[in-house]
Nucleic acid binder design. Structure first.
Lengths: 266, 266
DNA sequence: CCTTGTCATTGCAAATATTGAACGCTATTC
DNA sequence: GAATAGCGTTCAATATTTGCAATGACAAGG
């Protein structure tokens, strides 16, 4: 529910249009994202209006996307929706992504051993993260998160991870921090302290801030020196994370993230 | 290994380029497919050469795709690869596809009950099919097929399904039939007889032709009157499909496909 | 150290995609 | 039932992108 917030779809479109030498592609991507957001198929005009496009251009783009099987067209209703072609691309990406391949078995083991949900995420600067691997233990509560989900960069435990190890100046962090939505939002100072702690211990914790009653732990993964490229995440309901469990989980997650960093950089 | 045969990538590119009024999008899609096929990241020239594009145009398209996070660019090596953005699109498609949502529980039940692998596939005319849902029972052998896999339309049991219920003339079927790869290819007459049987019984069977030792059963699903839009598929090793098992499986799969057709058209 | 080959990138002319208005159509409203 | 409003679609003029040749950067090899 909280995921999939694409930052200002239309404004981003106009800016990327001005600069680019292939604006049709920016338009196409915007259309794909819009169709993905909507659960109902849309008509040409509706899409054009929403994205600030000229209807005729929008039509031609849609026809091209339909030709490529990225968009499905219903001749009766004249409505457009995403098509299964995007699935094929996603599978190909998954097949070739090193992180996904290496992280999945680790996540499976962790999820089983601790009886919780684990995620692997790819970090996109201060903008957002995308979940690229997941494992759910049978006992774990059903989570709305899935592979492909997007989240704002600075939220929850992964956010503290990014802040702690990304080397970003406060001037860039603070405005983005202000726009986040939490169940129980921490103050800026509180959050900064938790980020500092993550930097020291090498691992970040969100104790019920993002979703109350849910504890999230995240460890950074480096593909190359500099900022972390990915993160390993463990998610458990509060009761399972009290007492002895949490320290042992942190230890194990940290070890996994170190091993992954080694394998990815090699 | 047998999947992902995109029919003549470059020739399709040139034809769709001529006709389209948004050729940049055809180019972009071709690039995405090419990058998906290759496991190694590629440079501008390599991509341009392979697709018959002008390097400069290719560069601009790649930059636009990178901007949209559909393509990842490594500034050090100057190489391009697919990026995680395609995952987000795929997830959004899965969330909103009716067939996926309705078929998944049926497939899960079937897989568990019969101890085999089940698939849901979307049919794209005589060109190909895309697997859009899957369920594996614990006991089942690990299958290389995954959600997003592509297969030629006329192969295996789904192929007989398409031929039986699609209403295609033989003149269109025969040349495509000739290009298929089977472990133990049936003759044209043999195949036609099996297609006829599928038309009578309402369900198609491939008994070890596509992959020897493996029996595949496929039942058509209609979203609208005309040709079937999807298919439900069950895959089992020969031994599990002998004797009593197969007729019961066919019955159950057929019932599931009928129920699905009803729900989709309603 | 110079040469050679390849690569990514840029500038300019020509081809072409985008635009905005006009068309035909369907469904709704008076 | 006529009129309107909205839709998808087409068309010709123009602003834009494409394609090609040239440039600069880089690594390998002599």
């Amino acid at each position: 529910m909280k995921s999939d917030q694409h930052p200002g779809t239309d404004s981003q479109l106009t800016t990327s249009l001005k600069a680019s030498k292939a604006p049709a592609i920016s338009r196409a991507a915007a259309i794909l994202r819009l169709l993905g957001k909507r659960s109902q198929p849309m008509g040409v005009q509706a899409i054009a209006r929403e994205l600030g496009l000229v209807p005729s251009t929008c039509l031609y783009v849609l026809r091209a996307l339909t030709e490529e099987e990225l968009v499905a067209f219903d001749p009766d209703t004249k409505r457009y929706a995403l098509d299964a072609g995007v699935l094929t691309l996603a599978r190909q990406w998954l097949r070739h992504d090193q992180f996904h391949e290496l992280a999945q078995p680790l996540l499976d083991r962790l999820a089983r051993e601790f009886g919780l949900t684990t995620l692997g995420a790819q970090l996109f600067g201060l903008d957002h993260i995308i979940v690229t691997a997941m494992s759910q233990s049978g006992e774990a509560f059903q989570l709305s998160t899935q592979v492909g989900s997007r989240f704002p960069a600075l939220v929850s435990a992964t956010g503290r991870c990014i802040a702690a190890f990304g080397g970003w100046p406060d001037a860039q962090l603070k405005p983005r921090f202000g726009k986040l939505r939490w169940d129980e939002a921490p103050s800026w100072e509180e959050w900064k302290a938790q980020v500092a702690e993550a930097r020291e211990t090498g691992i970040a914790v969100d104790a019920g801030h993002y979703i109350s009653g849910v504890t999230v732990v995240a460890a950074p993964v480096w593909k190359a020196p500099g900022r972390p490229s990915h993160a390993l995440v463990a998610i458990g309901i509060g009761s399972a994370m009290r007492g002895e469990g949490l320290p042992r989980l942190k230890e194990t997650l940290l070890a996994a993230s170190r091993s992954l960093s080694d394998q990815l950089s090699g």
